[in-house]
């Protein structure tokens, strides 16, 4: 199979890779680039464990071909903490014990960050709706929802 050359930006870093045309972005992130923070839960776009952003839009990396990433800005969990500083969402998830086994956590955090970037003042319903594509089998979601709402409030205060 003839491999294709793809040039993209991942977490702000210009990145190039070679891949077969049928490889998913998830496969390339994990197995070619070693960015294993993005997880595979179902492989069918139904669980959200592989959530990443592409040009600021939240997508499931398992539902996108890697070749489609050419020229795009990809954001993964590895880019969420900046300069050794945790993102406020990460900090709040730790404080509020909003994670257990941790395998859904990167996807949840990426989705929550995308949500707050679009809507810095979401209602609880909007948070629940925004995270509906991220399955968690451990926590029951309550602490996750509270952590996102609390973070949003703190981030709004910090801006003021």
């Amino acid at each position: 199979m003839s491999k294709m050359h793809v040039t993209t930006t991942i977490n702000g870093e210009p990145t190039e890779f070679l891949c077969d045309p049928d490889r998913s972005l998830l496969d390339v992130l994990r197995n070619t680039l070693g960015l294993t923070g993005t997880k595979e839960g179902c492989g069918t776009g139904d669980c959200g464990a592989c959530s990443v952003t592409v040009d600021g839009r939240l997508v499931c990396a398992c539902l996108m071909l890697a070749v489609e990433a050419g020229g795009c800005e990809i954001g993964t969990i590895e880019g969420m903490a900046q300069g050794g500083e945790l993102h406020p969402l990460q900090q709040k998830f730790l404080e509020m014990a909003a994670l257990q086994c941790g395998i859904c956590t990167p996807g949840v955090l990426v989705a929550a960050k995308a949500l707050l970037e679009k809507n810095p003042d979401p209602t609880e319903t909007e948070v629940r709706f925004g995270l509906a594509g991220n399955l968690c089998r451990c926590t029951g979601y309550d602490k996750i929802v509270r952590a996102v709402l609390d973070t949003a409030a703190e981030m709004r205060e910090a801006v003021q």
Partner: peptide, 9 residues
């Protein structure tokens, strides 16, 4: 159709 993730695509 699907979640936010799917709606993006």
């Amino acid at each position: 159709i699907g979640s936010k993730q799917v709606q993006g695509r």
